[in-house]
Design a protein around this nucleic acid. Structure first.
Length: 426
RNA sequence: GGAGAGGUGUCCGAGUGGCCGAAGGAGCACGCUUGGAAAGCGUGUGUGUCGCAAGGCACCGAGGGUUCGAAUCCCUCCCUCUCCGCCA
């Protein structure tokens, strides 16, 4: 959501933003409806004020006098109802169109059509060189008996899977390690709902537009989240927080659900694109301070890259281009981790900065230090770790010729072993 | 799921059709008082929106309705509490 006042004053910036983000939106139509709405609103308010005033005098009249005055009053009332109806439908139309407006990208976001034009910012580690033909995580997982895709599909359909034994334990290990990593950095762990109301989806910017990607429980008008960002960011919906309590730095571990509609035939092999996965997510709610917000964005990125360094995984950071930016995102940095089976980097993290886009939709504000008008907060989020995607990197990069997989040192205490070996009989 | 009771401003709480944007109290702010503090006294104290302003409009859980007029009456929904049932 954008400030309508700002929209009226800066239509050109908005149109440019839409073009750069490859989003179609009719700014002029919105401005036209908005102008109509505001003029009608002032008519409604004026008429209502007249009616109220004369109602007051009616109350003081004698019954005989009142009888006479009632007729004119009724007529005006009917007129008001008609105007109110029009006003409401215009207001809804303004609202509907305004929800589609894109947040202008930051100045240093590269222009581009899609993820192919994202700009590499840095790399860390080097892709391992294998003196033998390396196996994919699917082959490794099957051989080790820790990944079972066919039976996952039998239970739940395509893009589902089972992790067994050390596979499931490795997942828990990396999730728990990530939680501990973030706890050291002052993030509060929160256990959040993953079935949420429509308002939370709209508030965080996933709806309207992302309905196709979400599983809906229509009978209960609830929606399965694709990320705990939705719940974490929505916690203080409608509240006015105290400046002293900001920033709120929080993480959640949750299952994430994605329909992956429109991705048929894309990433069909293995665990790269699945319907359900676990993610530790970091969300920060802070003051309306662009500089602070940018710095926090970098800090949040660093929490994740530090984690990847500790996991000894090679990765690159990219500055996501305008065409690959979401409607509400001002700036986004992705971390892409080296995955030998892809012969390239695959996205494992996504760090987004929203300015006040989400906060406006959520009506999430704070009272500035020393009083004054409530301001909309700034919100940011980033992945800490997502599984099974991180497992792809862990298994493939750390494989040995015999099909066993080395566990990075930091995870060994969580696993209780240095290596995943093939279990008996396989 | 069944039966009942409720949802009013920062908080407590009054308010069953016009005199209510809302009594009273607490809290908070300022002032008086005091050597200082407490007590006491006085004054002030919701938000949003439109407007240069005066002021208008909206908001008493949410949405509809009745009425010239609704915090107050009616309907639907949400939430909280109590009892019963079921249950991880």
């Amino acid at each position: 959501m954008l400030d309508m006042k700002w929209v009226r004053e800066n239509p050109d910036i908005l149109k440019d933003a839409a073009v750069r983000k490859r989003i179609t939106v009719d700014v002029d139509a919105l401005l036209k409806v908005d102008a109509e709405h505001r003029s009608l609103l002032s008519q409604v308010e004026q008429l209502r004020a007249e009616l109220r005033a004369s109602s007051k005098t009616l109350g003081k009249m004698s019954p005989e006098e009142r009888e006479v005055a009632l007729a004119g009053q009724k007529e005006k009332k009917a007129e008001l109802k008609e105007l109110e109806r029009k006003e409401q439908s215009l207001r809804e139309e303004v609202q509907r169109l305004a929800l589609l407006l894109p947040m202008p990208p930051a100045a240093d976001v590269p222009d581009g059509k899609d993820d192919l034009e994202n700009l590499q910012l840095s790399t860390s580690g080097t892709a391992p060189v294998f003196p033998y033909e390396p196996k994919s995580h699917v082959e490794l997982g099957e051989k080790l008996g820790i990944i079972d895709i066919p039976r996952g599909v039998r239970i739940a359909g395509t893009r589902n899977y089972l992790l067994l034994g050390d596979g499931a334990r490795l997942e828990q290990a990396v999730l728990q390690f990530s939680i501990d990593h973030m706890a050291k950095r002052g993030f509060e762990l929160v256990s959040v709902p993953t079935l949420v109301k429509n308002e939370a989806m709209v508030g965080t910017g996933y709806f309207p537009g992302g309905e196709e990607q979400a599983y809906m429980c229509e009978r209960d008008s609830l929606c399965l989240v694709g990320t705990s960002e939705v719940s974490l960011t929505s916690i203080h919906t409608g509240e006015t927080l105290n400046a002293a309590d900001l920033p709120l730095r929080r993480i959640a571990v949750s299952p994430c659900y994605r329909r992956e509609a429109g991705t048929y035939g894309k990433d069909t092999k293995g665990l790269y694109r699945v319907h359900q996965f676990w993610k530790v997510e970091q969300v920060v709610v802070g003051p309306a301070d662009e500089e602070w917000s940018k710095e926090e964005h970098q800090r949040m990125l660093a929490h994740a890259t530090d984690l990847m360094d500790l996991l000894e995984l090679p990765y690159q950071v990219v500055n996501v281009c305008t065409g690959d930016l979401g409607q509400g995102q001002v700036q986004k940095f992705d971390i892409e981790t080296w995955m030998p089976s892809r012969g390239g980097y695959g996205e494992t993290h996504s760090a987004s900065r929203f300015h006040d886009f989400q906060a406006r939709r959520l009506n999430l504000r704070y009272r500035p230090e020393g009083g004054g008008k409530p301001q909309f907060c700034h919100t940011l989020n980033n992945t800490v770790v997502a599984s099974p995607r991180v497992l792809i990197a862990l298994l493939e990069n750390n494989q040995n010729e015999d099909g066993s997989v080395n566990i990075p040192e930091v995870l060994q205490p969580y696993m209780g072993t240095e290596r995943i070996q093939p279990s008996k009989g396989s």
